[in-house]
Design a protein around this nucleic acid. Structure first.
Lengths: 335, 335
DNA sequence: TTGTATGCGTTATCAG
DNA sequence: CTGATAACGCATACAA
């Protein structure tokens, strides 16, 4: 910068003013400086600017992995939105382990992100105390269910209970009487799995159908998990005519395994997923799903985070947002 | 840091030495400093360190979008590898336009990444001149085909021609005589599409089958593109008994449309994709594909980039790597 | 409208 | 083994 200043016959301060588009720079000076900048190929040194300003313009995004379609699509929305807001996004993959999620949290401050959006799977509200101390004033938005904010974080959620309830109710309305839940959980705790399982359970109760443990298949939210879940159900000789899959990925795996077992969808078994990832519409049969308002969630997360970064939100007050959900009916539940 | 130094009764330099694990610090001093660091909750300021060191530890990754499974899975591998190497990755989404790809290139130096991995779609070798000036010494690795390096970039490629040739040959061996290519291109130029089309063409020639323009369906590499391509083929009354899809995403869209038209896979039409994304194995029918050695490509790209960042490669000499490919046969081509 | 002085937090250098 | 000093490149406050 000093070289530019010398070349243009001005002070470094004037160069700085030109670079940052400040007022009070005469046309002629500006032109002279710009010409020099151009000629010398000068670029601002972001590290120095960061040091000076105390901010980096970088938001961290911690997710299990961008290879999972759900997170890939979410990350795409967040990156796009962040770019529009003048931020960049560093993606950290946690692999869904509690340790690395905590690591990301710590890391986020070490690395000097301006803020962090974290979608936890391993880390839950039981870790709230540790989180609070780990974060202490640092802008963090929790995305998803495991961290429900617990009054210490801004939180973007989706309509897990209502969505799963709608999905299950939809199957029941189509005549299913033995509806299994793939990815469901019997355990306690707050997670996407347990909340959606609760929604499933409510729908059964509402319809006067019994809750049967044998219809709850606990699996990881992966293609392999979905396929294995169906195989297990069949192997155990459990009869079912409906399948609520807690994610679309799980559902796509299930469709595959159902085909392997010669079970027709939707004739023998009606299947519905959750997330409405793009692939759902192109599956064979196309997959009914619950669309959780991805873009609204991404927008909300970015808004909350940038407001907090800007200090526009009071330290103690935390916001909660739940995406609007919508049932999307396709072939897998009979169109 | 100065506060820590004061608290520990040493100089900032000693604190720095402790933080960076330098030798020549006595046990007792180290312990005292660490204790103070802990007590005061001190964290190194990365911006200052960056300013001092002239590097940021950040690698830019420019891809069309991480919502496309192929790029999502690639990004996941790169992020994981980069993390292992002590780098972080900022993801820039270009949306596959030439302008934003150029923008990413410019941006990469403005933002002070240590290097950039770029997978271009719009930008091609015809832009080589502009690229050269844009980059000029900055560490960049081109991933994919459009930028073949042109002797000015390190380049990680995949076996496009050989892979497509193997895929097409496989269909022919299974008895297909009218093999269409979905996503193929008639135009000139170097791109994944044109290279794979060339491979397809070679295989036809090798088998003594005629090259027919009507069997070349030019489409975007999306689910929608795949479905639309098949619809167009059927609508035009073009007979085909084999379908080489230039990406798996295209193939999954095609499978969907084939089902819509009542065409059985593999009985009426055999289908093969390219990329071997995870979903291929779980499609109904499961999708044969060409696995292009994703992880080897990711490793190679990171190795090349980090070596160049470290200045371990001569300025003028550029490296070329082609991933090992492998045909993966599944149901869609008859198992 | 432009320039001067100063400090952001680190670390390399070199003296002690 | 430890410490004083300078410098990385920029932008704020203030003076001219």
């Amino acid at each position: 910068m000093s070289e530019v200043a010398k070349a243009a016959g001005v002070s470094v301060m004037t160069v700085s003013n030109v670079v940052n588009g400040h007022r009070y720079v005469s046309e002629t000076t500006r032109d002279r400086v710009l010409e020099a900048i151009d000629r010398l190929g000068y670029r601002v040194n972001v590290a120095a600017r960061n040091l000076r300003s105390g901010s980096t313009g970088i938001i961290g995004l911690a997710v299990p992995g961008v290879d999972a379609p759900y997170f890939g699509q979410l990350a795409a929305l967040l990156i796009e939105g962040a770019t529009r807001l003048g931020y960049q996004i560093v993606v950290e993959q946690t692999g869904a382990t509690r340790e690395s999620e905590l690591g990301a949290l710590t890391h986020s401050r070490l690395r000097m992100y301006d803020g962090l959006i974290i979608s936890t799977v391993g880390l839950g509200n039981e870790d709230a105390e540790q989180l609070r101390s780990e974060i202490s004033g640092f802008p963090v938005v929790a995305l998803g269910e495991r961290l429900s904010g617990a009054g210490a974080l801004d939180h973007v959620a989706m309509a897990n209970v209502a969505g799963a309830l709608d999905a299950t109710r939809h199957l029941v309305e189509r005549g299913c009487r033995r509806v299994a839940v793939l990815g469901g959980t019997l355990g306690p705790g707050v997670s996407a799995g347990s909340l959606r399982t609760a929604g499933y359970r409510s729908a059964l109760a509402e319809a006067g159908l019994p809750w049967r443990e044998e219809l709850v298949v606990e699996r990881e939210f992966t293609l392999g998990g979905g396929a294995a879940g169906v195989r297990a159900l069949v192997a155990a000789g459990v009869a079912f005519d409906g399948l609520v899959c807690l994610t679309d990925t799980l559902a796509l795996g299930a469709l595959r395994a159902l085909a392997d077992h010669g079970l027709a969808v939707p004739d023998d078994v009606r299947v519905i997923g959750f997330d409405d990832i793009e692939q759902a519409a192109y599956a064979v049969p196309s997959l009914s799903s619950v669309a959780p308002g991805h873009s609204e969630m991404a927008d909300a997360a970015l808004r909350m985070l940038t407001e907090r970064i800007a200090g526009r939100r009071p330290e103690g007050a935390f916001e909660e947002f739940t995406g609007p959900h919508r049932l999307v009916v396709r072939e897998s539940t009979g169109g």
